[in-house]
Amino acid sequence: MALTRDDYRRALHALLPPGQALPADADSRWQQLLEALAGELARADGRAETLRDEADVRTTYELLADWERVAGLPDPCVPGEQTLEERRAALVRVLIGTGGQSRNYYVELAAALGYEITIEEHHPHTVADDVAHPIKGDTWRWAWTVRSPESTVTYLTVAGTVDEPLATWGNERLECVIERFKPAHTDVLFAYG
């Protein structure tokens, strides 16, 4: 907790040597100077405490644009304005993300974006397959399907501001992010509903 102006004034006064050279009346120029110094020290202490919140991407506000610049954001998959919470979540995702190619990685990536998906992997038809299995050619080994609700609704969180929309709809962001992070040799299909 940051010290107040009174805390600093008392501390500065306690550091002074005793005597008549430095008057103790509140109206003296010396006490006015100590009051001004105490105010500036309290302001600097408060800003230092704010810096602690700014150093954490989950709570940053003033340095958010600088954090985004360092992380290579805003994401090209996000057209238009983002809410404060979406911007912070994107920062966390970029800074702590380790990447991956597993089915679970893409399900978690979509969940971090606010989408609930399932993934279906395809493989070419072989002699060992059941007769009910669809006949697919050799190129299907590099294809996979992302299944999602037809339209995903994202609602405003409690930490949002008054100028942010209460809800947004759509799956364009999901498609863009999955396409960007998918292995280059694969083809991803999107199925909704």
Rank of each mutant, 00 (worst) to 15 (best):
residue 154 T to C: 01
residue 42 A to Q: 09
residue 13 H to S: 15
residue 159 A to Y: 01
residue 19 G to K: 02
residue 5 R to W: 05
residue 157 T to V: 07
residue 12 L to K: 10
residue 76 P to M: 04
residue 63 L to I: 09
residue 97 G to M: 01
residue 28 S to C: 04
residue 153 V to R: 02
residue 74 P to H: 05
residue 139 T to Q: 10
residue 22 L to D: 08
residue 29 R to Y: 08
residue 155 Y to V: 15
residue 5 R to D: 06
residue 42 A to V: 07
residue 188 V to L: 03
residue 160 G to P: 06
residue 121 E to I: 05
residue 46 G to F: 04
residue 73 L to Y: 02
residue 97 G to S: 01
residue 182 K to I: 12
residue 103 R to P: 08
residue 189 L to G: 00
residue 173 R to F: 04
residue 8 Y to I: 09
residue 24 A to W: 02
residue 138 D to R: 05
residue 174 L to P: 00
residue 17 P to E: 09
residue 65 A to Y: 03
residue 137 G to F: 06
residue 147 R to P: 01
residue 84 L to W: 15
residue 85 E to T: 14
residue 8 Y to H: 09
residue 79 P to Q: 12
residue 192 Y to S: 03
residue 70 V to I: 15
residue 48 A to D: 02
residue 104 N to D: 15
residue 75 D to I: 08
residue 172 E to Q: 12
residue 124 P to V: 03
residue 34 L to C: 10
residue 141 R to C: 08
residue 164 E to G: 12
residue 172 E to S: 15
residue 21 A to W: 09
residue 76 P to A: 15
residue 187 D to E: 14
residue 35 E to R: 10
residue 9 R to T: 09
residue 96 I to K: 08
residue 7 D to H: 13
residue 3 L to S: 14
residue 77 C to A: 15
residue 5 R to C: 11
residue 19 G to D: 09
residue 190 F to Y: 03
residue 38 A to R: 07
residue 149 P to N: 02
residue 86 E to H: 08
residue 26 A to P: 07
residue 105 Y to G: 06
residue 42 A to R: 03
residue 8 Y to E: 07
residue 130 D to E: 13
residue 86 E to M: 11
residue 130 D to C: 12
residue 141 R to Y: 11
residue 59 T to V: 06
residue 177 V to A: 08
residue 48 A to W: 03
residue 52 R to N: 07
residue 146 V to L: 03
residue 166 L to Q: 13
residue 138 D to V: 13
residue 12 L to P: 08
residue 134 P to K: 06
residue 162 V to A: 13
residue 43 R to I: 06
residue 32 Q to M: 12
residue 157 T to F: 05
residue 117 I to G: 00
residue 177 V to M: 04
residue 108 E to M: 03
residue 172 E to M: 02
residue 120 E to S: 13
residue 127 V to N: 06
residue 40 E to A: 13
residue 4 T to R: 00
residue 61 Y to S: 13
residue 189 L to A: 05
